[in-house]
Nucleic acid binder design. Structure first.
Lengths: 355, 355
DNA sequence: ATGAAAGCGCTAACAG
DNA sequence: CTGTTAGCGCTTTCAT
């Protein structure tokens, strides 16, 4: 039940008090003679002493741990975000406690309580709309918390998000320029800002380009496997058929691709496709996929910096929200309809140099 | 510096001692009258009391936290593993502290010390060969630790790994059956069992099928971006050209794909390709990719169960290693050479129903 | 420059 | 059934 070697053991071995050892451990060399310091350091080394973070944390009520709550660890988008968070935290001496809410408010709430119970210094969270009151409470008590990727409307939580309106807008404008007339969008339904904003970007852009309300083709589907595939099929069976599809998630994109293939339609001849989120495989899909690239790593990095600042700062830091800009990566899947040759699509439309 | 509401506050409010509160918190209802229990529970609720896990951990030297050290969070393979670990741990009431070693022994060592410092109850690790002594020490001191995916030869650490020999073997046999004559493999160099075993599987299978040592085509490359691509180009420029490539990583597969495309070669007509690790996008590549599927989720699940068992068990549990079997997912990219039609490959070779 | 003492919040003997 | 006491290992006044 006891720890192998404690600060007292080191103190005894070095012939000093625990206080002195503690000072040295925390880099307070100025208060100790060089000779003593050396002796203590030697004792630490010899005994292979490791300070107990629990005891330290209990005393200081700081743990150097950041809690991270994500909604879907299956989405590779989060890997980049996580890497940004991790790199930044590591540099600053923080450890991560990563949780998965599965977009379930109950699980999310449980995680938040759990993290607080463990005295994590701060929380980075991709929030669920269902826990607004809980977040308001966090904000009110001043518990360091930062939103990432999503935000909750009218809740002044600091955070870092993407410009989703612009992301959808970029995609739609690109498709319009390519001569596409009937652009459809598929999105998950729900009060989640990433989804709603992308739909909004789609809407406003089309309306700004002279389309009417009744020209909009919006399919909102529940966030569960297969739903997007069905929606895509539904859309593609309409008459007239949409000539472009805008996906709003990288997972969703694969389902849509499946739908298009199963209907025997060709991309981009019969229908153009633009995906949301650039992934390492987009380039190798059949055909190579045009996507909206989001600065995921950077988002993680900024969120981490923000939370660390909040953890350290005694004075309240600015509670602003950073908005990061997406960009469009244009590839084969959205090639202009007019430029489409009538023969079968090129195989291996790669980067060239035939060997 | 102090906690908002402590067990003492609850005790006072309920008119009992802290001990009684503690008992109730830990589900020891049998030792307390129903009436008292109700009063305490009520006080807890009213004060919104949350026990301090640090204090509890310090007292018991248990934290209900499992440390997880992975070598490369960028690889989506680990997402499945992580999900398996997470689901299992959550059910058992454990939190996760996830670290990324980036395959750097120094970082790994730092994480291990850090996790011990934080008194995590156990560690799941995808080990680096560089810290053998450290793992031996963990084993000697009886600190709960479980290897995952990799193991260190001649180190009796409990763990759960894949049958990599069989994985490569399945792929090679499949290619041989398809009439491929010059099968090459690309793997990362280093003492890492996952790589070496896959190469071994490749070797023994080919030799068992009557090939000679000099027929083997093995490219070992450093684990850094672009290296596999170069190796693939090197291989494909040989005369005679290999007619099949076996990749040993999903990240590597994308690089190889890139190489093949850049040389203007067709898959599977000019060269067959088999990837290692099934991912959600393999099916949608150009062409759909044959892969070796590994039970990633299950591996995480088993590793988690194992470590939890070790954390709880006072008596030493069996230190055995579980080996999970891979399976081959056959798709277009490894279609038999003989069966290859001479016309351009089919576009959208999807699952059918032209609608 | 160093040490003694007190206590962070909780649990685990031991009493009663 | 309930409370008293004594720490877990560390940091932090406050003395010296």
């Amino acid at each position: 039940m006891k720890q192998r070697v404690t600060i007292a053991d080191v103190a005894k071995k070095a012939g000093v008090s625990a206080t002195t050892v503690s000072r040295i451990l925390n880099g307070n060399y100025s208060q100790t003679s060089a000779e003593t310091t050396a002796r203590v350091l030697e004792a630490i080394r010899e005994l292979d002493y490791r300070p107990n973070a629990l005891a330290k944390g209990l005393k200081q009520m700081k743990t150097q741990v950041i809690g991270v709550i994500l909604s879907n660890l299956q989405n590779p988008f989060w890997l980049r975000v996580l890497k940004g968070i991790e790199d930044t935290c590591r540099k600053a001496g923080y450890q991560l406690m990563i949780c998965n809410s599965c977009d379930d408010p109950a699980i999310e709430a449980e995680h938040i309580k759990n993290l607080q119970t463990r005295n994590v210094d701060g929380i980075i969270v991709n929030p669920t709309p269902g826990n607004r009151d809980l977040f308001e409470q966090l904000l009110a008590t001043g518990y360091p918390c930062v939103f990432v990727n999503r935000h909750l409307p009218n809740l002044a939580m600091p955070g870092v998000v993407m410009n989703n309106i612009r992301g959808a807008s970029l995609a739609v404008e690109h498709l319009l320029e390519g001569g596409r007339q009937r652009i459809a969008i598929i999105a998950y339904q729900g009060e989640i800002t990433t989804w709603t904003e992308r739909v909004e970007g789609y809407k406003t852009t089309l309306l700004a380009h002279g389309k009417r309300e009744q020209d909009l083709l919006i399919e909102l589907v529940p966030n569960r496997p297969g739903a997007a595939r069905s929606a895509a099929i539904r859309l593609l069976k309409r008459n007239p058929r949409p000539d472009a599809l805008l996906s709003t998630t990288n997972l969703m994109t694969l389902e849509i691709l499946d739908a298009i293939q199963s209907l025997g339609l060709r991309i981009p001849e019969d229908v153009a496709l633009v995906g949301y989120d650039e992934t390492m495989w987009c380039k190798y899909l059949n055909p190579p996929l045009t996507t909206v690239r989001q600065p995921a790593y950077e988002m993680g990095e900024i969120a981490a910096k923000r939370i660390i600042q909040l953890c350290k700062g005694t004075r309240r830091t600015k509670l602003d929200v950073t908005v990061l800009e997406p960009e469009l990566v244009v590839r084969e899947s959205s090639r202009p309809a007019s430029a489409t040759p009538d023969v079968g699509a090129t195989i291996a439309a790669g980067t060239g140099t035939s060997g």
